[in-house]
Amino acid sequence: MLSKVQQLGRSTISVLERLGRGFLFFIQLIAALPNVVTRAPLLVQQLYSIGVLSFLIIFVSGLFVGMVLGLQGYYTLIDFGAEESLGVMVSLSLVRELGPVVTALLFAGRAGSALTAEIGLMKATEQLSGMEMMAVDPIKRIVAPRFWAGVISMPLLAAIFSAIGVVGGYIVGVGLLGIDAGAFWSQMQSKVDLTEDILNGVIKSIVFGVVVSWIAVYEGYDAIPTSEGVSRATTRTVVHSALAVLALDFMLTALMFGE
């Protein structure tokens, strides 16, 4: 009985320790921002492998999500004779929710897992300790550029996702289903607000970018330096990022759009 209690206590303490180390790590990443800015080539390289290489999956998913929204929205709205509101429906769902959330989930799968695996493998092959031996701080040199590249890429990818999604909804609604193009755009423009909807969507995607990148680099840096440990860390990155994004999305939505 007492050993069970002890087990519970031990796991609680280890979870708290991990959380604490995570926050200290986060502070180190924030503090490394000047180093990242002064060594721009490292950041550009990471922007390429995190941002540019995620572009295609974001582009294609955005297009199809927008097209599906257009199709499904049309079937619902046609019953009320309100199919002209399709543009409003598609753009609001994309800009407020689906753009930031789906981009963050895809980003965690496409870029976050790669970040964890890369940093974890560097740790497992003792490249990070090798750097420390040469008095090079691996956090400033390796981890921080990846983190900040993720933070920068995520809102940009979310904006691309939403814009392409609206175009996808336009292709289906106006091109295939024959909604009037003028009504599609004008209803959208009169209902979508710049600060209320679009700016809040951008803020959401920045928050998600910070959280997903942080989880990814921390899991990699904190991974057990074996092949099994790295594979577990990669799985944890995707699972924890998805959970964090969905839970945070609920809280942010309640804060931003609840009156």
């Binding site: 550009v44 941002g51 904006a159 814009a163 392409i164 609206v166 009169s190 710049l194």
Partner: peptide, 25 residues
């Protein structure tokens, strides 16, 4: 690499511009 990153930035800013000009009012 630098060219691709530059193009990525241009496309992303164009997307933001599209959202604020065409989608919102």
């Amino acid at each position: 690499v630098e060219i691709w990153v530059g193009l990525f930035m241009v496309v992303a800013i164009a997307a933001l511009f599209f959202l604020s000009m065409q989608v919102s009012s």
